[in-house]
Design a binder for these strands. Structure first.
Lengths: 202, 202
DNA sequence: AAAGTAAACTACTCGGTGCAGTTTACCAAT
DNA sequence: ATTGGTAAACTGCACCGAGTAGTTTACTTT
């Protein structure tokens, strides 16, 4: 039971874990500090010793989840590889991100609040940076290299990701469909690449 | 002020309008019956005379919004028109739906709750039917007619709509970006059609 | 008489605090 | 190494003020 962790640290972890569950299940408003404390098997007073308020606890959870998948989708432009190959890699790595549990949890927790309060959204997005940045930079490079038609890279990125998320993100988030299998992911990625290049490749 | 409406009916409309605002701003949990009644300039008791509970009022709002745009996106397959032409029409009409205020309000109100509680989602979706049905039937027809590659129509529909929603729905819902102008809509629709047909046209 | 009204009221739940008493962690002295 | 002491952390409980959904009452308007 010791696990080489001071008891205080154990409690803290228990609180964070319980808070994550609670927020995930009930959202920010629905979550209750009493229920959360009970779930963590910790006195409510202890919760408040670690985190002064519900808001601060919530932001800690969000930040924790953000950091947990800081390995962004980094795609680098290689002039001597085919666009197909590079984009396919990007698509698969995006799919892996979408399928990862921590990323999904983060979205499940935050997006519901985003819809209601945009100011919360912006603060989190600032902290998160742009995980899509890699792709839109890649597109810019490909355009400069004369291999893609001139197009707003942000817009094209949205299209590409939208194509993937349409089948591998929104249905799972909104109607908890199951995440596509690896074979299905392959098809989704290939379709996205084919469609995208059919439109923009020179 | 009379407008040939019985006073009871006027109050009812005021309540529905106020409830819509309240739910839209604060979500189901955040909305308060007291605040709602004040907003409608109506006694709280009157609210409860019309709607026995908060849940029932909420479902009435959702149903009302659903019905308000019952004109679904109906696209019919015409064997002697070009696929481009038909799909473009469908895309534009989808964009018009996405841009319509009542449709957007419906989503703003419901999707946040959907993310949290899938069972609520399913009941509403049942009542809503499938606004995408038109398109997926169209795709099936085009496949049977030998003009599109064989593909799961549901999947292809998701891709097509995902392409459009990526720029004309999710950004507006989550980070309240402004809705694209008519010219931008035209571009979005054309891009979606071009990409889609480049992938699936025979 | 029917419907609407304000206001008080019930029976909660919520986030957050205060406090007395217990447990843990850690450091020093034996 | 065991002891003892101290400071910090944890506990449980009562409590606060505010706010919730929903009800009741007593009164007014139409």
């Amino acid at each position: 039971m010791d696990k080489s962790l001071t008891l205080t640290a154990q409690k803290r972890l228990a609180i964070l874990a319980a808070a994550q569950e609670e927020f995930k299940e009930k959202g920010f408003l629905g979550a209750s500090m009493d229920s959360l404390a009970k779930r963590a098997e910790v006195s409510k007073r202890t919760v408040y010793n670690h985190f002064p308020s519900k808001d601060i606890l919530f932001h800690n959870i969000v930040k924790e989840l953000c950091d947990s998948f800081s390995q962004a989708v980094n795609i680098e432009y290689h002039p001597n590889k085919t666009l197909e190959q590079q984009l396919l890699t990007a698509a698969m790595s995006e799919l892996q991100l979408l399928g990862s549990e921590c990323f999904f949890d983060l979205n499940r927790i935050t997006l519901a609040e985003f819809i209601r309060s945009p100011e919360l959204a912006s603060s989190t997005i600032d902290h998160l940076g742009q995980q899509t940045d890699g792709l839109h930079v890649w597109i810019q490079h490909a355009i400069n290299d004369g291999r893609l038609k001139s197009v707003d890279p942000e817009y094209a990125t949205q299209q590409f990701l939208g194509l993937i998320k349409a089948t591998a993100f929104w249905p799972q988030l909104l109607m908890n469909q199951e995440f596509p299998s690896v074979e299905q992911q392959q098809i989704i990625a290939e379709d996205a690449v084919l469609m995208f290049l059919a439109r923009y490749k020179i």
